[in-house]
Nucleic acid binder design. Sequence first.
DNA 1: GTCGTATGCGCG
DNA 2: AAAGCGCGCATACGAC
Length: 874
Amino acid sequence: MLRVTRTKSLCKQCALNGCNKVRGLSEVDKPSLIVIGEAPGAEEDIKGKPFVGPAGGWGKYGLRESGINVNSAHFMNVINCRPPSNDIASLDALDAIEKCRPGFEQELRELHTRGVETIIAWGATAMHALGIEGPIGKNRGSVYEVKVAGKDFIVVPTFHPSYIMRGMKKEEPTWFNDMAKALDIATHGWHPPKENFQLFPSIEWLEKETKRLCSMKKKPQLAVDIETAFGQIVVVGIASSSEDAFSVPFFGKGMISYWKNGDFGRARSCLSRLLSTCPTLFQNAPFDVSWLVRAGFVTLDAIDIRDDILLAHHAIHPELPHNLGYIVSVYGATPYWKDIVVSNPKTLMAMEDADVRTYNLRDAVVLHQVKPPLLDDLHSTGTEHIYRGISMKLVKPVIEMELTGMKLDKKRHKSFAVKVKRELAKTEKKLHSVAGIPKDFSVSSPLHMARLLYGKIPDSLEQKKADIASYDDEGTRKRKDTKKYRELVDYVKTVESIEPLQPTRAAVQKNWKTGGVSTDEMARTSIYLASKTMLREVKALVRPKPFHAEKAKRLERNIRILELIDSFQELNKLSTTYTNFRLGEDGHVHPRFVITGTKTGRLSSREPNWQNLPSADDEDKLGAEVRKLFIPDPGWCFVGADYSNLELRVLSWDSDDKMLQTWFAEGVDVHTRIAMSLTGWPEDKITKTVRKGAKTYKFGRNYGGSVEGIYRRLVVRIPDFPLSLAEFREADRRHFELMPAYAKWQAKTREVTLKTRTCVTASGRKRFFLGTDEEIQREALDTRIQGPAGDVKNIALIKFYEERNRLGLKAKLVSDLHDAIYVTCPKTEKKKVARLLKECMEHEVKWWKKPVIFPVEVAVSDRSWGEMVEYEVK
DNA sequence: GTCGTATGCGCG
DNA sequence: AAAGCGCGCATACGAC
């Protein structure tokens, strides 16, 4: 046992004056590593031992989970005495850090002589005390060689256990990893990566190196990373191992060309040869490769994209962040380097060439570093087939979608924009003039809206008023002729001049997650419906009193305002989101599709998000125009196909629910059947409203919604839904009775999720949940449906890409809408492509040895995306 | 000014 | 006590 008393010489001058009450401690004479925290807490103070309180308990749990023998660690703090109310930032505590320093160093020296050199720093205080600057969030997981008290130590900073204890469970796996890394260093020693970088190649050197790499018998895998600025590739970094890398620069500081005269062409040939001869490795290949293809350095066909670190990490653990800095902090050895460059092109081009290229090559070599441990994890988690069989194969189809894009009908877009803006201005004017809403009222401001709906005064208003008052105080020297002052005054004036709706009878709706008031469409609709009811009641009075007329007037104002606000919201959304698209040189909009964008395996889309454009369902709405703005190239057309009821079919198949399966097999309308099963009514009694209600119910229930929660939303969305809550509960009971397999599937999913805190889909995707018990049950229910549905479509995307290549068709993939795929092709190919798309999408799935096919419906258009018409495939 | 968080809303 | 899931984007707002 080792117990270290720190020098007491400075204790008497220390503000805490505890005379190092809680001394560093290990159970053995020769500990294997050192764990440093901040300061003793209440419990430690009483017992006189470090890490015996709740945070200490969590810390030891973390150590054990990381494979560390708690008894072999030496526990110590930056200071040995408890700061008042545990406040490490207090002046007294800061004083103590200084006064305890000699003792802190003495303790580390003592340990060093015993051969202990590895330190886990729990939290920023310990990290800073060891001379490592910066925030813990960025530096955690990196390995630092530091000199303290004249001795060399290896430090791995990570989160303080109290941070994890306070509920940051999402960081827990990262925390374990960091500490396991420290254990590995304590056991096997620290071998920092070497960097053999060529930053300024001559053309001769580049050609020689290209020849050497490309003529090797076993072609080396090249890690590739690019930097871009002002629409140009500035440098391509290529790493042939975790230590050796070279730059292929094109521009230097200030966008000055790197190559002179004809050497650019020679450099370009080298790059082309490298990229089309050797297998490659990327962090986010869709980004880099689409740049490389557009720059003409390689074709999509020629490049062999063998691995992608981002995709691998996502397949292993979709919940975690996937940026390279994070992945390297867990799997790699290079200390955090991402502060070197900011994404701003101006700043990038102001940097020294050596700095930019070193950063770029570091991005490349670390890919080799982290690849082997990532492949191990893919193997041990059983997610290799997701990575190799789906994610990697999606890379090229996804790049193709981005490169293809869709042509924007400029003329139509212009008139659409004008129309939306005109309607918006009209609505706004009415809000001001007719409904008496102040001009500065912002529909997008929840604070304004809360004042209007509930008369709620924002909490921040008092502070703002106090601020204004402080301008009047003498001595503050605050000038009133400033923009800031005017804004304050205007803000208060606006909020106070909003006359709240009344009477409303609707209860204030709370946001259950944050406790704030709710001002969304549902809350507004509740008030709207209540106002309508009250108005009817007032109007129905046989002998109304004079104040009733006043009341009716106020209610009419409510109704008017809420109607106008809804149409304003709708138009505002259209105006801000869809009247300004960024176009490529080809006049196309080029959205990106992100393979790692979701936790379930769906794709996500961005810049712009192609997956949430208003659908063309409601012809009367202006939103229906948006998809019509996108047109095929001259002589080309669109072919699209969507799975019918994909998620519900996945559920019926995965749960083996005979009822649903029968309905699907018979080809009847399932939502009508569900409505019949809920109500017990015959088919002719199922109105559109009831069917809509049944659909809402089924979707909500599938994803873990409660009967009450679903009903609460349902009555607002479908005001004339005929069932009472009691009847709805009864319907729910009946529904589950009718579908015992579905009920069992849900129960089993919940049970397994709670027990394992993981979820495996039929398609073999895994999630390792980090949320609360309640959250993760709902997430698991959703993932088991959404995941396989996404993968059915992912596989179709891959199949189409491959088959199209095999057949040599001109058709190109355009878009992915979760349950639909859109393609563009010459009109002459329409028939072939329609058939091919249907065939590829209706592939047989054999997961869990239960073969199944999910049927699709095909549609085509020569005109626009918004005018697709059904197409019979022969 | 820039950033992160909250809120709301479009889609499946 | 109650809470449907998965996204991206626009705006507001407070902190730096």
